[in-house]
Structures are given as C-alpha cells and as structure tokens.
Design a protein around this nucleic acid. Sequence first.
DNA 1: GCTCCTTGGGTTTTT
DNA 2: CCCAAGGAGC
Length: 700
Amino acid sequence: MSSHVSSKEAQDFSDLNPSQREAVMHGEGPMLVLAGAGSGKTRVVTRRIARLIAAGVAPSSMMAVTFTNKAAAEMRERIAHLVGPRSAKEMRVMTFHSFGLELLGSEARALGLRDGGFTVYDQADCSATIREILRSIDAGKRFDIAAILARISLAKNAFETAESWVPRPHDEYDEIAREVFPRYQAALRSFHAFDFDDLVTETVSLLRRREDVRTRWQRKIRYLMVDEYQDTNAAQLELVRLIAGSWRNVVVVGDDDQSIYAWRGADITNILNFSEHFQGARVVKLEENYRSSASVLAIANAVLSSSRGKRFGKVLKPTRPEGARVEVAVCLDPEIEASFLVDEIQRATTADPTLTHDEIAVLYRSNSQAEPVEQALKEAGIPHRIIGGQKFYERKEVKDLLAYLRAALAPEDEISVRRVLNYPARGIGEASLQKLSSYAVARDLTLWQAVERAIDIDALGGAAVEGCRQFEQVVTVTRQMLERNTPSHQVAEELTRRIGLKEDLMAASPGEAFARRWRNVESLINLLKRRDERGPSDLQAVNDYLRMLTLQLSEEEEDARRVVTLCTMHGAKGLEWRLVFVIGVEEGYLPHTRTTDPKATAASDQDIEEERRLFYVAVTRAREKLWLTRCKHRSSRGKPMNRTPSRFLLDIPAELYDQREVSIRPGPDYQRMAQGAASVLKALDALKDGTARPVPRRRP
DNA sequence: GCTCCTTGGGTTTTT
DNA sequence: CCCAAGGAGC
C-alpha cells in the first residue's frame, strides 16, 4: 500500500544529518556506512529502504541481512512502520543462515538431495557427531570437543576443506582436528545433515558451480543490505559477492570498533577493505551519537583511544548533554555487587518514576555471572529476564521429542536415532549400540537399517532385540502418521504417550523440576500446533519447519515486557537502555582469562583488542546512566581469589568517573551477616562436641 | 544394562 | 564448583 510510502515521515529527510541523508539518498552501487555506536544506523537502513520503495523498487527485490533473527524481526517491524506491513512482508529480512536455509531448501534438486531432505544440526548435534568419531578412532585422550569443533568451523568459514587445511605444527588440537575434520564432514553428509557453517558455505559452493542457480538468485535480489558487517566472515563475504553479482547494489553498515566475533571467524578486514572488495564504493561515516549522554561517550572514547588495533579511527561526537556522572562501584564480592545493583535499581526507579524496569540492563562477560544477580533481583521482587543461558531448544526433553520426529522423517539422521534409540530406557545399552553400529558399518547400512534387522544380529541379546523392535515400532507409527498428514502436534502428542514421556520425566525429576520440564514439552507441542494452523502437515512441510526451528529456537522466544534485562555483552549488541550496569570489570573477565592465558590458543594482542571492543560495546549501550562495577574477591572453582581491576578500566582517566567502595550495606545484609555469624558459632560448637557434619548446601 | 559413586579436569562469547 | 567419563555393584 502506498499510503505509508507517501507519508511525510518516509519522504521528509530534514530530520537527518548530512551524512545520514547521503546514505539514505544513495541509489545504486556499493556503499559502506561506517556507523559509530548510537549514530542512527538502523534508521538510515530503514529510511533508505522506504525511499527505494517510494521510488518504485519492488520490496521483493530487496534483502536486508542481519546478524540475529531477533534483529531481523525488529528491522522488519521498523520497515513496516515506514512502508506498511504488506511491503515489509514481501522483503527478505533475515540472517545469512536463514537465507542459506531458504536457498538450499528451494534448490534441493540442484544439490542432488532427494525429496529435499536435509536436517540442520545445532552445536549439540555436531558435538555428538564428533564424540562418536573420537570414539571410533580411539583418540585416547579426552579432548575438548568444543575446541575441535571451533577449529573445524574456522577452517570451513575460511573455505578450507578437510584436504586443504594445514594444521599448525605442535598444536595438538589442530592435529586431532585434522583427523576428525574429513570424518566429520563425511558423517554429516551421510546423515543428510548440514551444520550452521554449511548453511553458508554450501550455499556459496552451489552458487559458484551452478550458473543457472546463481543467475536466478541474482535476478531475485537486486538490492542487498548487510547490517553488522564487521562481524561477517570470509564465507559470508563471498555470499555477498555472489548475490550482488554485476549489479553490485550492496550497502553494508557496520562499525569496526564493535567487531567482537573474530573467535567465530569474523574477519575485520571485510569492513576495513570494503573499498577494495567493491571497487568504487562510496564510504559514509556516521559519527554523531544520538544515544548516550556526553559523560558516557567520554568513557567510550577513552576506552578506544588506548586501542592499538587497526581502525578507521572514528570518534563519537555527543549530541546530548553531559548527563549523570559515570560511577564505578568497587564491591567486596559478587553477592555484594548484586545486592548493590539491586539497591541502586530501587533507588533510581523510585527517584524517577518514568524509569521503568525495561529501561534497565545488567551486562556481564560470561553467563555464569548472571546467577548472583538473578538471586538478588528475585529476593527483591524485581521482574527480570535473562537473555541467553539455557535455551529452550537445548533442553533435553525438547531435544528428545524433536529427535523422534527427525528420526521418523529421516532415519538416516543417525545422531537423532542414537539419541532416542534407548530413551526411555529399553534395554539397548552401550554394548548393544556398539554391536548394532558395527553390524551397520560392516554391511554399509545406516544405524536405522541395523535396528530394523536387529533380529538377524546374532551378537545381540534378547532384551536389546526387543528394545529395537519397540523403537522401530514407535518410529514407524510416527512416520505413518506424518505420511497421512496428521497435524504435527497430534503426532507429537501421540508420540509422548507411546514412549511414556510424561511418566519418565516424572520419575526422573523431583518435584518442581518435573513441572518445568513438562511445560517445555507442552510449549513445543503448542509451537507445532500454531504451525499446523498455518499450513499443511505433509512430510515436506514438517521437515522444513523442524530445520528452521533449529535456527530460530536457538535464540530467545522471550517477550520483553516491563522487566530488567540480564545479558552478556555479546548479546547486548544493537540494544540500548537508559540505565546500564556493566559488572565484573576485572582482569579475568575483561579481558577474559581465556584470551590472555598463554596456555590457551596463542593469546595475541588482537584477542585483547577484541575484548576491549567488547567493553566498548557494553559501555555504549547506556543512554543516561552507566555504572561499572567490579569485585575485590571472587571465588572461582570453589577457591577464593583476589581480583584486580580491568586494564581497560585503568586506561580511563580517573576524572571521567566517580568511584565508591561498597563493602556492606545496611538492611538485609546485616541480617544475613548475623545469620552467618550464628552458623559459624554453631559449627564451632559442633566441632567441640564432635558432632560436626558436612554443612548442607544452601541452594535448593 | 542400569544406577550410583568416584575421580579428574577445566574455567567465554553464539548463528 | 560443575560436568563428564569410568568403575563398582546390583
């Protein structure tokens, strides 16, 4: 509908500064928008889209690529606000991975996959695959699977194949990865599975080798926009190049100073060298910051000014007044830190009733830091949500149910079959699994085919044969229901009944845990129900939906009602709040030990620079008030440790912030201390009587 | 084959 | 401290 497009908001550019206007008015050809934090980059992207639509460009010929599905949803919403929901819906707004999924799904024939069947493996599935491979090659030592996976992932994103990749000498993880890589890739192919990296790299290789496919997609997508371009890797750059084709209508938006995903293969030279990759590119810098108070920006600029990395060298220019002083709270330990921040939230929201909880965030380096904060917020009755942490899709009961569905849809998906072959327990233990597996290998069968032939396997015991029969029956019935186009949620319900999932969960999880886990099962069934209402339940449709779930559900399905947000600094990118607490500003977290420890993967200055940028990202989330907190003591692995301030904090001139010590607070803390003292006295008494017992742990 | 216990080893970020 | 793997006992 054009009523939106012709609206004043979309066509009046007087509210934009000259650089923003230049970016919005840009027509064809490559452009790099270097957008500092809070400089209005989303605004520029969405306004440009609205302008192009107003100029007659079909929304369906445009694609905007974002970094997360959540960011995509938000961008689509903002576009809808400018141009109307109809046009917004026609546009492609998605992540690289979702795009890969769409393209591979619709080009299944070109890929040579029969009936479009492939599965998407998440990290847990990939880990399970590697665990099996390590077992099969008798790797001996207990390797860190995540480390192997990380190396394979980096190699794949750099277009190394199992054959071409050269491990670094004297790096035992490179060496084991060299062994695992070809087997891993072969295993995924035989399971008809793609991992997240494949979604991009396989798309690239398909577009490279099939001119017809390439041309088809280049005709489809005439305008391409990429957000958070500093976080793209080599494979994604290649995908951009292939899609952009000869039109080269590529607008990328990003900030080299916010590049924080090198550990995942992101290559900062993509943005630094954009003008070489796309000759004749226009470069626009957005340096005026509309988000943060001048006090916050002074801190942000100070953090970057000590940076030694290669940069475009932007400086954020404040447009807003000085605002409240930035404060540093030096706390005794994490519990004090948490109760201090709760106290401060209560004080601030009371003093300013317009400051609602959804305008407040607590940011930390690692998910484990959320726990004491959550505890303190809970005690104080402050509503909050944790972004990240244990994801819905990763919960065991959800994965188990999905594994059954996947096994029914595609029995060659061995990881799924393995996962539920003996769940709930039906007499097929490690030994029987080995026998099934070697039977399959010897005859070049899939594991599923071996299960079907269980009765013919002499080595297998009676209980195991019976278990295989039961499993085969459950899977077969499930498949038949799907073949008859039974709504998928009904299939899932019948499945839970047949395997006795409810009873098993009840038996395995005490009290409250059962309710929570069963609720997860019900939410999954509900999710399927909503899908059923929208479309058919044929095999293809359900399969498509399940593999999309792998991408979508690895993120938050959370609703952001008026609650305080807790999230990692990585997860905070692109978001903003009026009041922000950055906690744990200590050596060991910022930078993280893992990046400074010489024992870990060759710790380099580059890694530390990335940690500095991460701190910069965290700081620039604050609009009005920024608190930096750190602890003097903290226990790690049960051992108490003294903590020192982050080097990045020490780099900030002291006159830019106020500092205060927080050791103990009046109120509840005194009570807690008194209780603590009482229990110590009691324990001493007990020691004297000889009735000492291990003190039960406090947490439920 | 299953469950419970001991032991040893490692600390992050996520599509 | 927390998890996973391996061993003992049922």
